[in-house]
Design a protein around this nucleic acid. Sequence first.
DNA 1: TCTAAAACTGACCAATTGGTCAAACATAAC
DNA 2: GTTATGTTTGACCAATTGGTCAGTTTTAGA
Lengths: 204, 204
Amino acid sequence: MKNTLSRRERVKLANRKAILSAAEEVFAQKGFYAATTDEIAERAEFSKGALYTYFRSKEEIFLSLMREKVGSLEKKIKESIKVTLNPIEGIENLIKAHLEFFEENKEFFQIMASERGRFEMGIKNRLRRELMRRFQSYLKEVEGVMKAAVDNKELKAIDPNHLAIALIGMIHSFTAQWILTGGESSLMELSPVITMLFFGGAKG
Amino acid sequence: MKNTLSRRERVKLANRKAILSAAEEVFAQKGFYAATTDEIAERAEFSKGALYTYFRSKEEIFLSLMREKVGSLEKKIKESIKVTLNPIEGIENLIKAHLEFFEENKEFFQIMASERGRFEMGIKNRLRRELMRRFQSYLKEVEGVMKAAVDNKELKAIDPNHLAIALIGMIHSFTAQWILTGGESSLMELSPVITMLFFGGAKG
DNA sequence: TCTAAAACTGACCAATTGGTCAAACATAAC
DNA sequence: GTTATGTTTGACCAATTGGTCAGTTTTAGA
């Protein structure tokens, strides 16, 4: 069973994905504002007019893309935590899951790093509100594991919010550096260093 | 003694600073591409034409601003390290210096966070090359303290580059969060948490 | 006060770009 | 083959914006 969609609907969906994928590259390379709908259309091998039958505006392309990516990041993180009841192991898995996700979604990471500070702009926009909601939800997820580990006395009695900020900061920093230096070697290889530094600190 | 500059020259210099300061706000709020020279001119209380007697292009405004800011960040970091010969204390001072600088230069931090991934664009540009050189130099400075501390056996035998990435990531992450939540309370207050987490890790 | 140079203004220009739409094309059912 | 419906095209439009420059104002020294 393919599924319940007609041929037409399946083609539409595949085209939509192709457009979002092209947009991801362009947004990552140029940033939201400097990216042009012409270039997105060209890379997706459609005319500009066709783009606008799939999405109502450039902003809708951007927000749809980000919403889907943030959603799947959150899903991946949730799953990585759920496989164990041990909070320490949960955090280890969470680090690995992040690195794996960013390695597979380099462009998304670049977009997020560059546009995160402007998510709040135009708060009235329905899609923007939903994007922010999902992003918050992802952060709360990380904070939740930290709280569990603190309650368990497995981590120091530090504000779980601070613990989450610290770990995410380290992960982002390593990922950004990995991208700047070409993104060739595997990002996952850094998982042990990050784990060790986060849990044990740098002092010898 | 005021200095050796004529009244005219002093006014010119002050105006230049005012333009850069206006540009800093606009670039921070809108990003490089979406910032308009009209808005920069308006905020600096000049006509657009006058802007172009101070700078040759929008890009030159941007790069001049960033070059000066990265330069003074590097200077501050260097000084914070130099006051002590003890590497651990040096790193503590470095954390404080970072937080102090970002607290006083919120806009610069926002610009850096959002445009860092595109510094490399147009590498042929002289100003761009110089900006990158200064930025590398700043990173090397941080790496240098880490290496000293590792050689001293005060930190674990970890690649100093990794140690620098981890610490800077934590600092950036806390700063970004502080800005997102309004930037009201003092960022410096977070210095003990960061210091403790970096040296001692999260494990209880 | 007079003058020449420096500084400033803002209308203007050319290029870019998000978005539209009438016409052309493709598809599928009969 | 015909027709109706859905899809695509790309020329086009209006708005925006980086940058210019002829003309005006300000400055400072004589």
